[in-house]
Design a protein around this nucleic acid. Structure first.
Lengths: 162, 162
DNA sequence: GGCAAAATCATACGAACGGGTGACACCGCA
DNA sequence: TGCGGTGTCACCCGTTCGTATGATTTTGCC
Protein backbone atom coordinates (compact mmCIF):
# COMPACT_ATOMS: atom_id res chain seq x y z
CA UNK A 1 0.00 0.00 0.00
CA UNK A 2 1.62 3.19 -1.13
CA UNK A 3 0.82 6.70 -0.12
CA UNK A 4 -1.60 8.57 -2.32
CA UNK A 5 0.10 10.87 -4.77
CA UNK A 6 0.91 14.39 -3.83
CA UNK A 7 -2.02 15.94 -5.61
CA UNK A 8 -4.42 13.71 -3.71
CA UNK A 9 -2.90 14.55 -0.37
CA UNK A 10 -3.08 18.18 -1.29
CA UNK A 11 -6.73 17.85 -2.10
CA UNK A 12 -7.42 16.20 1.24
CA UNK A 13 -5.59 18.91 3.12
CA UNK A 14 -7.40 21.61 1.20
CA UNK A 15 -10.73 20.02 2.02
CA UNK A 16 -9.89 19.81 5.71
CA UNK A 17 -8.85 23.45 5.81
CA UNK A 18 -11.90 24.51 3.85
CA UNK A 19 -14.30 22.77 6.19
CA UNK A 20 -12.51 24.09 9.24
CA UNK A 21 -12.69 27.65 8.00
CA UNK A 22 -16.30 27.24 7.00
CA UNK A 23 -17.19 25.92 10.44
CA UNK A 24 -15.44 28.82 12.12
CA UNK A 25 -17.19 31.37 9.97
CA UNK A 26 -20.54 29.81 10.71
CA UNK A 27 -19.93 29.80 14.43
CA UNK A 28 -19.03 33.47 14.41
CA UNK A 29 -22.02 34.32 12.25
CA UNK A 30 -24.37 32.43 14.49
CA UNK A 31 -23.01 34.07 17.57
CA UNK A 32 -23.49 37.50 16.04
CA UNK A 33 -27.04 36.69 15.08
CA UNK A 34 -27.83 35.21 18.43
CA UNK A 35 -26.70 38.23 20.39
CA UNK A 36 -28.30 40.76 18.11
CA UNK A 37 -31.82 39.52 17.86
CA UNK A 38 -32.71 36.32 19.54
CA UNK A 39 -31.76 37.19 23.05
CA UNK A 40 -34.08 40.09 23.18
CA UNK A 41 -37.26 38.53 21.98
CA UNK A 42 -37.20 34.97 23.24
CA UNK A 43 -36.69 33.11 26.39
CA UNK A 44 -33.37 31.43 26.98
CA UNK A 45 -34.84 27.97 26.70
CA UNK A 46 -36.16 28.44 23.19
CA UNK A 47 -33.03 30.27 22.11
CA UNK A 48 -30.78 27.56 23.50
CA UNK A 49 -32.77 24.86 21.73
CA UNK A 50 -32.58 26.67 18.42
CA UNK A 51 -28.85 27.14 18.44
CA UNK A 52 -28.45 23.58 19.67
CA UNK A 53 -30.39 22.32 16.67
CA UNK A 54 -28.48 24.58 14.32
CA UNK A 55 -25.10 23.49 15.60
CA UNK A 56 -26.01 19.84 15.69
CA UNK A 57 -27.24 20.09 12.12
CA UNK A 58 -24.03 21.81 11.14
CA UNK A 59 -22.05 19.11 12.86
CA UNK A 60 -23.99 16.34 11.21
CA UNK A 61 -23.50 17.95 7.85
CA UNK A 62 -19.82 18.31 8.52
CA UNK A 63 -19.52 14.74 9.67
CA UNK A 64 -21.32 13.33 6.68
CA UNK A 65 -19.39 15.49 4.28
CA UNK A 66 -16.08 14.57 5.82
CA UNK A 67 -16.68 10.86 5.78
CA UNK A 68 -18.21 10.90 2.32
CA UNK A 69 -20.79 8.60 0.95
CA UNK A 70 -20.58 5.04 2.21
CA UNK A 71 -19.32 2.77 -0.52
CA UNK A 72 -20.61 -0.61 -1.30
CA UNK A 73 -18.53 -3.64 -0.55
CA UNK A 74 -17.54 -5.09 -3.83
CA UNK A 75 -15.80 -8.39 -3.68
CA UNK A 76 -14.23 -8.71 -7.04
CA UNK A 77 -12.77 -12.03 -7.91
CA UNK A 78 -9.93 -11.78 -10.31
CA UNK A 79 -8.47 -14.76 -12.03
CA UNK A 80 -4.77 -14.91 -11.44
CA UNK A 81 -2.95 -17.06 -13.88
CA UNK A 82 -0.31 -18.99 -12.09
CA UNK A 83 2.59 -19.58 -14.42
CA UNK A 84 3.87 -23.06 -14.97
CA UNK A 85 7.28 -21.86 -13.87
CA UNK A 86 8.68 -23.73 -10.89
CA UNK A 87 7.32 -21.18 -8.46
CA UNK A 88 5.42 -17.98 -8.59
CA UNK A 89 7.34 -14.93 -9.68
CA UNK A 90 8.80 -12.94 -6.84
CA UNK A 91 9.53 -9.29 -7.41
CA UNK A 92 12.55 -9.52 -5.19
CA UNK A 93 14.37 -6.25 -4.59
CA UNK A 94 17.70 -8.03 -4.81
CA UNK A 95 17.70 -8.33 -8.57
CA UNK A 96 16.21 -4.89 -8.84
CA UNK A 97 18.82 -3.12 -6.78
CA UNK A 98 21.56 -5.18 -8.33
CA UNK A 99 20.83 -3.33 -11.54
CA UNK A 100 20.29 0.02 -9.87
CA UNK A 101 16.65 0.11 -10.85
CA UNK A 102 14.35 2.00 -8.51
CA UNK A 103 10.94 0.81 -7.43
CA UNK A 104 9.18 3.38 -9.52
CA UNK A 105 11.16 2.48 -12.59
CA UNK A 106 10.37 -1.18 -12.11
CA UNK A 107 6.71 -0.34 -11.71
CA UNK A 108 6.78 1.50 -14.99
CA UNK A 109 8.62 -1.34 -16.67
CA UNK A 110 5.86 -3.68 -15.60
CA UNK A 111 3.18 -1.43 -17.02
CA UNK A 112 5.20 -1.12 -20.21
CA UNK A 113 5.27 -4.89 -20.50
CA UNK A 114 1.49 -4.87 -20.24
CA UNK A 115 1.42 -2.89 -23.45
CA UNK A 116 0.50 0.50 -22.03
CA UNK A 117 1.62 3.74 -23.65
CA UNK A 118 3.40 6.45 -21.73
CA UNK A 119 0.19 8.43 -21.45
CA UNK A 120 -1.73 5.44 -20.15
CA UNK A 121 0.96 4.69 -17.61
CA UNK A 122 0.90 8.31 -16.50
CA UNK A 123 -2.85 8.19 -15.98
CA UNK A 124 -2.60 4.88 -14.18
CA UNK A 125 -0.09 6.01 -11.58
CA UNK A 126 -1.29 9.64 -11.42
CA UNK A 127 1.79 11.41 -12.71
CA UNK A 128 2.44 13.43 -15.83
CA UNK A 129 3.53 11.88 -19.07
CA UNK A 130 6.81 13.75 -18.80
CA UNK A 131 7.55 11.99 -15.55
CA UNK A 132 6.95 8.63 -17.15
CA UNK A 133 9.32 9.62 -19.93
CA UNK A 134 12.00 10.58 -17.45
CA UNK A 135 11.65 7.32 -15.57
CA UNK A 136 11.68 5.20 -18.68
CA UNK A 137 14.62 7.07 -20.11
CA UNK A 138 16.68 6.37 -17.00
CA UNK A 139 15.41 2.81 -17.00
CA UNK A 140 16.61 2.26 -20.57
CA UNK A 141 20.00 3.58 -19.56
CA UNK A 142 20.27 1.09 -16.73
CA UNK A 143 19.05 -1.82 -18.81
CA UNK A 144 21.10 -0.89 -21.82
CA UNK A 145 18.00 -0.64 -23.97
CA UNK A 146 17.16 1.80 -26.71
CA UNK A 147 13.48 0.94 -27.06
CA UNK A 148 10.73 -0.06 -24.68
CA UNK A 149 10.39 -3.43 -26.36
CA UNK A 150 14.06 -4.03 -25.74
CA UNK A 151 13.70 -2.97 -22.14
CA UNK A 152 10.87 -5.46 -21.71
CA UNK A 153 12.98 -8.22 -23.24
CA UNK A 154 15.91 -7.44 -20.95
CA UNK A 155 13.62 -7.14 -17.95
CA UNK A 156 12.07 -10.51 -18.59
CA UNK A 157 15.27 -12.35 -19.29
CA UNK A 158 16.91 -10.93 -16.20
CA UNK A 159 14.00 -11.86 -13.98
CA UNK A 160 13.03 -8.29 -13.26
CA UNK A 161 9.49 -8.89 -14.46
CA UNK A 162 7.57 -12.18 -14.92
CA UNK B 1 -29.63 4.17 -7.70
CA UNK B 2 -31.56 1.43 -6.02
CA UNK B 3 -33.09 1.33 -2.58
CA UNK B 4 -31.24 -0.57 0.09
CA UNK B 5 -32.77 -3.87 1.13
CA UNK B 6 -35.52 -3.94 3.73
CA UNK B 7 -33.35 -5.14 6.58
CA UNK B 8 -30.87 -2.37 5.96
CA UNK B 9 -33.59 0.24 6.00
CA UNK B 10 -34.84 -1.13 9.28
CA UNK B 11 -31.41 -0.90 10.80
CA UNK B 12 -31.04 2.64 9.55
CA UNK B 13 -34.37 3.64 11.06
CA UNK B 14 -33.51 2.06 14.40
CA UNK B 15 -30.22 3.87 14.43
CA UNK B 16 -31.84 7.16 13.56
CA UNK B 17 -34.35 6.82 16.39
CA UNK B 18 -31.69 5.78 18.83
CA UNK B 19 -29.41 8.65 17.96
CA UNK B 20 -32.29 11.09 18.00
CA UNK B 21 -33.29 10.05 21.50
CA UNK B 22 -29.69 10.16 22.61
CA UNK B 23 -29.28 13.63 21.18
CA UNK B 24 -32.41 14.83 22.94
CA UNK B 25 -31.20 13.50 26.27
CA UNK B 26 -27.85 15.18 25.77
CA UNK B 27 -29.47 18.46 24.90
CA UNK B 28 -31.57 18.37 28.05
CA UNK B 29 -28.59 17.42 30.15
CA UNK B 30 -26.47 20.18 28.71
CA UNK B 31 -29.19 22.73 29.24
CA UNK B 32 -29.54 21.68 32.85
CA UNK B 33 -25.82 21.94 33.38
CA UNK B 34 -25.61 25.23 31.60
CA UNK B 35 -28.23 26.88 33.78
CA UNK B 36 -26.92 25.49 37.00
CA UNK B 37 -23.28 26.43 36.80
CA UNK B 38 -21.91 28.00 33.69
CA UNK B 39 -24.16 31.02 33.46
CA UNK B 40 -23.11 32.22 36.80
CA UNK B 41 -19.39 32.09 36.46
CA UNK B 42 -18.63 32.94 32.83
CA UNK B 43 -19.46 35.56 30.30
CA UNK B 44 -22.02 34.75 27.66
CA UNK B 45 -19.45 34.70 24.87
CA UNK B 46 -17.38 31.95 26.41
CA UNK B 47 -20.40 30.00 27.41
CA UNK B 48 -21.86 30.26 23.92
CA UNK B 49 -18.64 29.15 22.34
CA UNK B 50 -18.37 26.16 24.60
CA UNK B 51 -21.83 24.85 23.91
CA UNK B 52 -21.33 25.57 20.23
CA UNK B 53 -18.22 23.41 20.23
CA UNK B 54 -19.96 20.71 22.20
CA UNK B 55 -22.93 20.58 19.91
CA UNK B 56 -20.86 20.71 16.75
CA UNK B 57 -18.75 17.86 18.07
CA UNK B 58 -21.87 15.94 18.91
CA UNK B 59 -23.20 16.59 15.45
CA UNK B 60 -20.00 15.53 13.77
CA UNK B 61 -19.96 12.36 15.79
CA UNK B 62 -23.58 11.71 14.90
CA UNK B 63 -22.93 12.39 11.25
CA UNK B 64 -19.94 10.11 11.04
CA UNK B 65 -21.68 7.36 12.94
CA UNK B 66 -24.83 7.61 10.87
CA UNK B 67 -23.07 7.40 7.55
CA UNK B 68 -20.71 4.75 8.78
CA UNK B 69 -17.13 4.33 7.84
CA UNK B 70 -16.50 4.30 4.12
CA UNK B 71 -15.96 0.72 3.23
CA UNK B 72 -13.30 -0.53 0.98
CA UNK B 73 -13.64 -2.24 -2.29
CA UNK B 74 -12.13 -5.61 -1.73
CA UNK B 75 -10.44 -7.13 -4.69
CA UNK B 76 -10.06 -10.76 -4.00
CA UNK B 77 -7.58 -12.56 -6.14
CA UNK B 78 -8.39 -16.15 -6.80
CA UNK B 79 -5.57 -18.33 -7.96
CA UNK B 80 -6.40 -20.40 -10.95
CA UNK B 81 -4.00 -23.11 -11.88
CA UNK B 82 -3.42 -23.09 -15.56
CA UNK B 83 -1.93 -26.12 -17.22
CA UNK B 84 0.72 -24.08 -18.92
CA UNK B 85 3.23 -25.69 -21.19
CA UNK B 86 6.02 -27.37 -19.21
CA UNK B 87 9.20 -26.49 -21.00
CA UNK B 88 9.51 -26.42 -24.72
CA UNK B 89 7.54 -23.93 -26.70
CA UNK B 90 6.07 -25.18 -29.91
CA UNK B 91 5.30 -22.62 -32.55
CA UNK B 92 2.34 -24.60 -33.61
CA UNK B 93 0.46 -23.30 -36.63
CA UNK B 94 -2.84 -24.19 -35.01
CA UNK B 95 -2.90 -21.20 -32.68
CA UNK B 96 -1.42 -19.05 -35.36
CA UNK B 97 -4.02 -19.77 -38.02
CA UNK B 98 -6.76 -19.67 -35.44
CA UNK B 99 -6.09 -15.96 -35.17
CA UNK B 100 -5.53 -15.47 -38.87
CA UNK B 101 -1.89 -14.58 -38.42
CA UNK B 102 0.41 -15.45 -41.31
CA UNK B 103 3.86 -16.96 -40.91
CA UNK B 104 5.58 -13.78 -41.90
CA UNK B 105 3.59 -11.76 -39.42
CA UNK B 106 4.38 -14.20 -36.65
CA UNK B 107 8.04 -14.04 -37.56
CA UNK B 108 7.95 -10.30 -37.27
CA UNK B 109 6.08 -10.50 -33.98
CA UNK B 110 8.86 -12.68 -32.62
CA UNK B 111 11.53 -10.23 -33.68
CA UNK B 112 9.49 -7.43 -32.16
CA UNK B 113 9.41 -9.29 -28.88
CA UNK B 114 13.19 -9.47 -29.03
CA UNK B 115 13.25 -5.72 -28.89
CA UNK B 116 14.14 -4.97 -32.49
CA UNK B 117 13.01 -1.83 -34.26
CA UNK B 118 11.24 -1.91 -37.60
CA UNK B 119 14.45 -0.99 -39.35
CA UNK B 120 16.39 -3.73 -37.60
CA UNK B 121 13.72 -6.29 -38.44
CA UNK B 122 13.78 -5.16 -42.03
CA UNK B 123 17.56 -5.64 -42.22
CA UNK B 124 17.30 -8.99 -40.49
CA UNK B 125 14.84 -10.53 -42.92
CA UNK B 126 16.03 -8.56 -45.96
CA UNK B 127 12.96 -6.55 -46.72
CA UNK B 128 12.25 -2.85 -46.63
CA UNK B 129 11.14 -1.04 -43.53
CA UNK B 130 7.83 -0.23 -45.21
CA UNK B 131 7.14 -3.91 -45.62
CA UNK B 132 7.74 -4.49 -41.95
CA UNK B 133 5.36 -1.68 -41.19
CA UNK B 134 2.69 -3.18 -43.39
CA UNK B 135 3.06 -6.56 -41.75
CA UNK B 136 3.02 -5.17 -38.26
CA UNK B 137 0.04 -2.98 -39.04
CA UNK B 138 -1.97 -5.96 -40.20
CA UNK B 139 -0.71 -7.93 -37.23
CA UNK B 140 -1.92 -5.30 -34.80
CA UNK B 141 -5.30 -5.43 -36.46
CA UNK B 142 -5.56 -9.17 -35.97
CA UNK B 143 -4.37 -9.07 -32.39
CA UNK B 144 -6.42 -6.04 -31.48
CA UNK B 145 -3.32 -4.14 -30.46
CA UNK B 146 -2.49 -0.48 -30.91
CA UNK B 147 1.18 -0.67 -30.01
CA UNK B 148 3.94 -3.18 -30.55
CA UNK B 149 4.29 -3.68 -26.81
CA UNK B 150 0.62 -4.53 -26.63
CA UNK B 151 0.98 -6.92 -29.54
CA UNK B 152 3.81 -8.65 -27.71
CA UNK B 153 1.70 -8.95 -24.59
CA UNK B 154 -1.22 -10.41 -26.50
CA UNK B 155 1.07 -12.71 -28.43
CA UNK B 156 2.64 -14.06 -25.27
CA UNK B 157 -0.57 -14.52 -23.34
CA UNK B 158 -2.19 -16.29 -26.26
CA UNK B 159 0.71 -18.65 -26.73
CA UNK B 160 1.71 -17.25 -30.08
CA UNK B 161 5.25 -16.59 -28.92
CA UNK B 162 7.17 -17.97 -25.91
C1' DG C 1 19.02 19.81 10.21
C1' DG C 2 21.26 18.69 6.17
C1' DC C 3 22.59 15.80 2.44
C1' DA C 4 21.98 12.38 -1.34
C1' DA C 5 18.84 9.69 -3.78
C1' DA C 6 14.59 9.48 -5.77
C1' DA C 7 10.57 11.38 -7.77
C1' DT C 8 8.27 14.94 -10.09
C1' DC C 9 7.48 18.18 -14.04
C1' DA C 10 8.52 21.10 -18.14
C1' DT C 11 10.13 22.18 -22.84
C1' DA C 12 12.00 21.17 -27.17
C1' DC C 13 13.46 18.36 -30.89
C1' DG C 14 14.55 14.43 -33.72
C1' DA C 15 13.57 9.57 -34.36
C1' DA C 16 10.49 5.83 -34.42
C1' DC C 17 6.01 4.24 -34.85
C1' DG C 18 1.23 3.47 -36.72
C1' DG C 19 -2.67 4.37 -39.98
C1' DG C 20 -4.24 4.93 -44.50
C1' DT C 21 -3.92 4.30 -49.25
C1' DG C 22 -2.41 2.45 -53.43
C1' DA C 23 0.26 -0.54 -56.14
C1' DC C 24 2.52 -4.82 -58.05
C1' DA C 25 3.99 -9.72 -58.07
C1' DC C 26 3.58 -14.42 -56.87
C1' DC C 27 1.11 -18.62 -55.88
C1' DG C 28 -2.51 -21.98 -55.19
C1' DC C 29 -6.95 -23.18 -56.33
C1' DA C 30 -11.38 -23.25 -58.43
C1' DT D 1 -8.19 -17.95 -66.43
C1' DG D 2 -9.52 -15.31 -62.81
C1' DC D 3 -9.69 -14.77 -57.87
C1' DG D 4 -8.17 -14.52 -53.12
C1' DG D 5 -4.41 -14.70 -49.99
C1' DT D 6 0.17 -13.40 -49.19
C1' DG D 7 4.26 -10.75 -49.55
C1' DT D 8 6.46 -6.77 -51.12
C1' DC D 9 7.15 -1.65 -51.49
C1' DA D 10 6.14 3.44 -51.47
C1' DC D 11 4.23 7.87 -49.80
C1' DC D 12 2.03 10.93 -46.54
C1' DC D 13 0.61 12.39 -42.12
C1' DG D 14 -0.15 12.48 -37.35
C1' DT D 15 1.12 10.37 -33.04
C1' DT D 16 4.15 8.35 -29.86
C1' DC D 17 8.63 7.62 -28.22
C1' DG D 18 13.24 8.73 -26.60
C1' DT D 19 16.84 12.16 -25.43
C1' DA D 20 18.70 16.26 -23.47
C1' DT D 21 18.51 19.73 -20.20
C1' DG D 22 17.14 22.05 -16.24
C1' DA D 23 14.43 22.60 -12.34
C1' DT D 24 11.80 21.66 -7.90
C1' DT D 25 9.99 18.69 -4.39
C1' DT D 26 9.88 14.61 -1.57
C1' DT D 27 12.05 11.05 0.94
C1' DG D 28 15.35 8.35 3.49
C1' DC D 29 19.17 8.44 6.18
C1' DC D 30 23.02 10.10 9.03
Amino acid sequence: MTLPPLSTRWTLLRHALLYGALGGVLIVALQLIEYRYLVITHSYEIYGGIIAIIFVSLGIWLGMTLTGRPERIVVQEVEVRVPAEPVAFSADPARREAMGVTKRELEILGLMADGLSNKEIADRIFVSENTVKTHSSRLFDKLGARRRTQAIQVGKSSGLIP
